[in-house]
Design a protein around this nucleic acid. Sequence first.
DNA 1: AGTAAAATTTAGATTAGTCTAAATTATTTA
DNA 2: TAAATAATTTAGACTAATCTAAATTTTACT
Lengths: 218, 218
Amino acid sequence: MQTFTEENYLKTIYHLSVDDQTVSTTQLASLLKTKAASVTDMLKKLSEKKLIDYTRYYGVNLTAAGKKVAVDVVRKHRLWEYFLVEKLKFKWDEVHAMAEELEHISSAELINRLDEFMGFPAYDPHGDPIPDRDGTFQQQTFQPVSILQVNEGGKICGVKEHSAAFLQYLERLNLLIGNKIKVLEILEYDQSVVLTINQSANRVIISRDAAQNILISI
Amino acid sequence: MQTFTEENYLKTIYHLSVDDQTVSTTQLASLLKTKAASVTDMLKKLSEKKLIDYTRYYGVNLTAAGKKVAVDVVRKHRLWEYFLVEKLKFKWDEVHAMAEELEHISSAELINRLDEFMGFPAYDPHGDPIPDRDGTFQQQTFQPVSILQVNEGGKICGVKEHSAAFLQYLERLNLLIGNKIKVLEILEYDQSVVLTINQSANRVIISRDAAQNILISI
DNA sequence: AGTAAAATTTAGATTAGTCTAAATTATTTA
DNA sequence: TAAATAATTTAGACTAATCTAAATTTTACT
Ligand SMILES: [Mn+2]
Ligand SMILES: [Mn+2]
Ligand SMILES: [Mn+2]
Ligand SMILES: [Mn+2]
């Protein structure tokens, strides 16, 4: 059993270690909104518990056991977010903080029943894949809108940036999951992208930065 | 905002202070599975925060503010229990431990939406009334089976004892909420009660102790 | 290669909640 | 009403998680 705090450290290491990259103390301190000295203390503890591989001054990786805990927390987070949006009708920009608490409810049986109750959803409200009870993820090959050329398009499937501000911006522009977009033009000046949504007559212009944070399948 | 632990203290004081009775340090230590010395420390803190009225050596009462927090925790506990039984199909003896964690999820909006999602239930799976969002309880006048005379009866509406063992025992004997019972005989030897359930031909005998822990409306 | 800058760790304190043992106060009983 | 007993509080210590400031190690750059 892990404490609330240990689970948050493991989850954050997991999110930072894409492609099994080693994670640094400062990266963790920044994401966990704490100080590097505190992180060092916790890394020693997690290392003791064999949940991470930790080399002083050289950063940290999850062990298999640590990754299992992290994926389990991620599963809970995403299933609760799905519940809040699909059953309790919250908006996709409102659910993250609640899920940050709910992800620490310990019962495995509870989360498996919740999964079943909702029909085993594969993706959370932000398009992030939900691991199944064994920790297996749906294969996911989403691409940012920014890779598209003029006249290419795709279906919106997720977001890279999860801030409420960005999600509200997407809602305002009707850039929601499931909608189909097509690139009409890429402005030379600043790489802004001109789009249509679901073949409507309206044109929408988004910044290159936004284009990098919207994920589509082609 | 209160910590997890503070909420548990306030909830326990609330449960112990039926009819505004003063609650003692030892009572609290026993129910909270901690030591009297620890309770004293916490009582000082809650008193500082004006959530309880505390007189050294003479016990403790909730202030209006403290009662509000306690009732809110009770509301969350019972709504989550209802959710677990009605939506996730847990049995009534399985939900208490999970609700002990879920009752500390902070969002008021979440619990109000959950309440609405379930159709504003008035009672939890054990027959305990669920306060509404203003903290108002349904008027409740349930009586223990032990007050019945021979040939009297009523409808099972709740339990006084909440242990899993007792709940499983009731399930086994089909003494479930909603069922109608009638007392056929009270045995002189030990006040055991002989019953019928829903007018069936089967006789059930329960101890006086069990009869005191089953609540009915007449 | 040698120094400056950046990252990281150690040292020492703090806060919340807990504990045991000792001291104090209240209650019971003779 | 004065012990004896029971309940409660205080004193001092411990663990988990955090912090600031100082020391150490790595890395980046001349
Ligand atoms: Mn989230
Ligand atoms: Mn999400
Ligand atoms: Mn309960
Ligand atoms: Mn209950």
